[in-house]
Design a protein around this nucleic acid. Structure first.
Lengths: 142, 142
DNA sequence: ACAATAAAAGATATGTTTGTCTTTTATTAT
DNA sequence: ATAATAAAAGACAAACATATCTTTTATTGT
């Protein structure tokens, strides 16, 4: 798996919240969990984390829920970084602590372009792109 | 991390065993663990698994140890598959069970070429290539 | 003020990965 | 045969990821 399960949920949850936000609505934990097919309480924790990391906003009380202000300025890489950190794009594929461009492992050069492509892909994909993707026919969130 | 820690150890251990085998020598658990900087007992387990999966061979008793018969016909992908399975190359980046070429998630097409590059890279890299890589100056196994 | 709602927070549980330790089995050399 | 060696196997433990449940806090509408 490229991303942790937590991170997969986080992206799908954010996309769902963005979808609701685009209609001027907020989404509650139960609704999000149902929409993306994730365990409810765990989803709550993840949403909580995303709020703390400024990916999402939230409001308590009736009419409360999670929402997103600027989905077009939010990119997948922001979510990946918030949940899984930056290791996917930086840490040595063979697990060598000291591996770097200066002192590369034998796989370093071969893996670098692949890593960079992943990085670029997450960097250039705004959450809104997935919203329209999932909104369209044939796509689904769970 | 692209590969599990176990898989990173497995690759490095196999490379070290291949290096020794190229000199007609076997390598014991203690020696391997020291060479690649991994926890000894855990390394034993991994080597054991690699033997069961036909990646390595082993001999008990004095003059025993782990060895490799055909390092040039052994590719990194064989080790990755033996330890981490095939999920890295197949399972949906957003964690969607039903995601496939027929019913793709919005990231499917974008991620596919990256996945394929990773797959190709592991597939075309024989263990012997890393052996010479690590043998050369500037490289290291831990 | 009060009741209802919904997120935040905390405690606890389960599962998997990673790591350690001990015992057993097979092999070798003497 | 016996002692030494080294992998195989099994039991156990710690750390982390994933998941559940309960209590608290903030907000809203009445």
């Amino acid at each position: 798996m490229i991303l942790s399960k937590t991170c997969e949920y986080a992206i799908r949850a954010t996309v769902y919240v963005a979808l609701k936000s685009s209609r001027g609505e907020k989404a509650g934990i139960i609704e999000v969990a149902r929409a993306i097919g994730s365990p409810m309480h765990f989803t709550g924790k993840i949403l909580q984390t995303l709020v703390r990391k400024k990916i999402l906003s939230s409001a308590k009380g009736p009419t409360g829920g999670f929402y997103l202000e600027n989905g077009d300025r939010l990119f997948l890489i922001d979510i990946v970084r918030a949940i899984d950190g930056n290791g996917l794009f930086t840490s040595c594929v063979l697990g060598l602590e000291r591996c770097s461009a200066v002192q590369p492992c034998p796989m370093h050069e071969q893996v670098k372009p692949i890593r960079d492509m992943l990085h670029d892909e997450f960097s250039r994909t705004p959450v809104t792109e997935l919203v329209s993707g999932f909104g369209a026919n044939g796509y689904f969130l769970k």
